[in-house]
Design a protein around this nucleic acid. Sequence first.
DNA 1: TTGACAAACAAAACCGATTTCAATATAAGC
DNA 2: GCTTATATTGAAATCGGTTTTGTTTGTCAA
Lengths: 338, 338
Amino acid sequence: MGLMISIKDIARAAKVSHSTVSRALQNSPLVSHQTAQRIREIAREKGYRPSAVARSLVTRRTKTIGVVVTRIADPFIAEVVNGIEEVANDHGYSVFLANSNADPDREVKVVHSFHERRVDGILVAASRVGALYMPLLTEMRVPTVLINNQHPGEFVHSVMIDNPTASLQATEHLIQLGHKRVAYIGDQFGFQSDTERFAGYRRALEVADVPFLPELTAHGDGKAEGGMRAMERLLALAEPPTAVFCYNDMSALGALRAIRAKGWCVPEDISVVGFDDLFIASYTNPTLTTINQPMRQMGSAAMEILLKLFNGANSKTNIKVQGQLIVRESTAPPRSGY
Amino acid sequence: MGLMISIKDIARAAKVSHSTVSRALQNSPLVSHQTAQRIREIAREKGYRPSAVARSLVTRRTKTIGVVVTRIADPFIAEVVNGIEEVANDHGYSVFLANSNADPDREVKVVHSFHERRVDGILVAASRVGALYMPLLTEMRVPTVLINNQHPGEFVHSVMIDNPTASLQATEHLIQLGHKRVAYIGDQFGFQSDTERFAGYRRALEVADVPFLPELTAHGDGKAEGGMRAMERLLALAEPPTAVFCYNDMSALGALRAIRAKGWCVPEDISVVGFDDLFIASYTNPTLTTINQPMRQMGSAAMEILLKLFNGANSKTNIKVQGQLIVRESTAPPRSGY
DNA sequence: TTGACAAACAAAACCGATTTCAATATAAGC
DNA sequence: GCTTATATTGAAATCGGTTTTGTTTGTCAA
């Protein structure tokens, strides 16, 4: 703490100027091999670690990035962050992590704090702030990449999943199995990703000439609790659906639970499809048919965009990745009775 | 980036010295109310954010902490980090997050990088390095708190779950239900938490006069995959157990899957108890009886220890929290046939 | 009128590094 | 032998703040 050794301590011990020490530790060719060797040895002995904060002040790069997420405990986000951290660490960057708790005010505060810390770049995962970032970012001119965000628009860099295509596939899968009454359990109404996934669902019905029934659409909250409530409403219908496509795996988890609570079986009585392919989707009972989202890769891709920007790239990058349907046990043809 | 406004820009605009600006922004009483007001107004207008890195250099405190975890995507750890981040953020601290991937070398590197960044404190979650920290920490004199670590010993601050007591409760629960053949699925052999949980299991058997059968102990890897393999081995026994206590929920998840793969039912054919009470434990089928570990609170407790240390406290703190048995659907009396 | 004291601000030192510029010594070229 | 290039190092400026020390001005009591 107070007794941190500095470059000057090393300089004194080596009887050279501190500039020489600096050069020696950077393997600069401007120091003789011998002195460099000697200095490095002394530094090692004393356990000297150059201060990144002092270095950052003069080099004007902190080699840090800020990552703002809604909740790190969200398994989807945790995987994304894993991908980010891996690439960042490999390139000598440290990552600041902050939760926004889906609170726009807090999110803005967090970004400001990142600004004060002079991060070299910012990554935003699954925020609902979206376009609100516009003024913030222009104000502080820090490269920023949004991952699966609300309305990333064209104004910033982004990594997004192709929602419409993926949910079209998911719904098509159910239709091909023979389902006619396919329900949709969404996230909160109005969120872009929900709107897009809903659009894919509608499109699949349209293509297959299956009528869209408004009563088969229910909105949850993107979490298990909401999925459960939404499913309960669907099950209370006079004629419940024979299949349901859920906004994400968490919602599907809730749906599975609601179905089981009613004493029905998946997939015999009702088929369920999720979205994300969280780890848990392989361990539910029955295992969950879902759309795989390459979460880790989305994280690393975002970080790699940042790295390119640090290296001077200045083109707008908007990556759209494809989901992949993973068929497991939770989907089957409807009962012949229907 | 290059055109970041500094305190001097504000000073120039306000026609005062930059020291006055500094004081004004700190609400120092050494500036007249008027000038302070004026300066703050100008700073706001220009969107000025003081550089935390420059400030850190002179104040010798970065208001950052480093958190090293094995894998942020581990749900247990994610919850702990959530607790940490919350408290940290509330007190103006930013958190650096780094994965060690359970690789001691990488872990040491990460800690060194934290050292260079001059973090005010370090939090280590679920590391296996344990006592290896001793030299590292004395070398750099940064307050450190270990959370559920290997051998935290008495030499540093720590927050730990009371493993023996909790697993004693878990096992007792099974015994009270009438089980005599209670198995234990552990983590990798030799890890402290595994040893401790195993000890609680042994103790429960001993207290209830249930004979300990070595063949009913299997080791996994703390993950679902390992739990599945271990359970498969137990199921292959001539006389399989009627109940199994798992090292953690992930292992239990694997066990559930293995049991289902064999066509057996939980809890009718075999009871399963986990450990952690991950979110998912409420959503498995059947829902999982487990030991609740207050993960968030453990994270916040650790951060609060750090805060106390920052405020000059210097006593060794070793918090031991209690787990709580949560009975759900995965446990029931054994079939009367046995 | 003058000295003491406080209020308000400016000037300068400092934190720990990097980097530019200057200085010295040695080697090379003629 | 003298100039010039080269290698090696030191001195000093700088990054953007905080904090200590100085300076100016004004108020008030003696």
